[in-house]
Design a binder for these strands. Structure first.
Lengths: 233, 233
DNA sequence: GGAGACAAAAAGTCAGACTTATTCGTCACG
DNA sequence: CGTGACGAATAAGTCTGACTTTTTGTCTCC
């Protein structure tokens, strides 16, 4: 995605990471560095670097005389964008998408409220532009163009909140929106009500109306949650 | 903290990580693997493993013929518990604490609402126990004992929400609460109103009253935000 | 002054030997 | 029988040195 297989150790991670996050090795499973190096046909140095990265994500733990043991899912660094990507590409993408959508529903309304207070005039302009782009592509099976503007819209909101923790969720939200468009729901044109809400949020932010921006965004995320409930009650 | 200097590469990270997150190397600064290996008196293999970990946190980027370049703060994986710890131990701990408290104010109310729906009877019992422990230690300069129960309380709420993304913020919230007690505010006994709110949240969760649990928790987090505003308006 | 070739620099890779910590089995001792 | 200590096996950890690959800056040459 962002950094595709840069170097041999990257290629190893592209295979091993998804396998682990997909749960192919039950927690407590033991892998041996040497065997992995053989399997991927790389030197032990390269394999060790890959293991170190997995370890920094808390996916595995490396202990002397034991080997590389897989940690239970509850200990994974589930906010690591790489881990999120692996899991979204794997088996439990539905569960993952639900968790992330709930996260969105908590974060984005608050972020929109802050954005109404902190957004620069340029960010307001970008927001309006994105909302207009969504309107323009809301009919006629132009889902891809719509998605681009939708992702940009939410990224601007999160950035404009002025909170770095929120801002860093831009990639995650984009991934969720993309996943929704490309796989699960959204067979036809997007919900007109949602499009309108985005336009209204842009207006509220520009007007500096924090309460209204927060409430409108809450409606958007509630809608996203309902979409999931319809799909898998 | 959790995994203190495990192995040589861990020791290198314990020094280099805080240096980078403290901003001692401006974005775009170039480090050379060989020089770093010399500086820390380790072999290049060990140094490379450390660089790989820093790279997986998006703190640096390693490119051929160029070296290891430090990335701008906006690209760091700020949700990585290790990065959070490094930053909380460093220069901008105040800024970091503020960001995290805003994050809490978005997450915890929603988590409490979900907890009211999903908490098991055992989790309800734990919650009540924590709240009672907070009451018992709310007077008489027993800040440490109070803190333990406070951290446990919020961890149970986040776990009981049933959302893994929320659950994994337990460590972060604990870190924020600990930081608040040990450094910034909290010179004397905690605010009695806050203690009462925790007890009421425990009751609301046990009663399955999601709306009330959410609203009460919102009051708690608003209080935490106000504490910061009083300290640094 | 632009395009292409060349050289230097730094990360990337590999192989092999050695070190160290941990675990497990065994054996002696209570 | 249990128990504790000793020792051997094992797999990660470390170091070294040689080699490869990619990128970049420069220096021609047209």
């Amino acid at each position: 995605m962002s950094t595709p297989g840069r170097g041999l150790h990257g290629h190893v991670l592209d295979t091993l990471g998804p396998e682990i996050t997909a749960g192919e090795y039950p927690p407590g499973s033991v892998l041996r560095t040497d065997e992995l190096a053989q399997r991927f046909d790389v030197s032990r140095s390269v394999m060790r670097e890959a293991v170190r990265v997995l370890e920094s994500m808390h996916l595995v733990e490396s202990r002397r005389r034991v080997g590389v043991t897989v940690r239970p899912m509850s200990e994974w660094n589930v906010y690591d964008p790489q881990v999120i990507r692996w899991r979204l590409a794997g088996k439990d993408r539905a569960r993952q998408l639900r968790s992330l959508t709930v996260l969105r529903s908590a974060i984005e309304p608050v972020a929109a409220g802050l954005a109404a207070r902190h957004a620069t005039s340029q960010q307001c302009a970008e927001l309006t532009e994105c909302a207009l782009g969504m309107v323009a592509n809301s009919r006629g099976h132009k889902l891809e163009e719509y998605l681009v503007h939708d992702m940009a819209f939410h990224r601007v909101i999160l950035d404009a909140s002025g909170n770095e923790m929120f801002a860093r969720l831009g990639d995650v939200v984009a991934e969720v929106l993309a996943g929704r468009t490309h796989h699960d729901v959204m067979f036809e044109d997007p919900d007109p009500a949602a499009v309108t809400l985005h336009v209204q949020v842009a207006e509220a932010v520009r007007a500096g109306d924090a309460v209204r921006a927060e409430e409108l965004t809450r409606e958007i995320t509630v809608g996203a949650l309902q979409e999931l409930d319809i799909l898998a009650p």
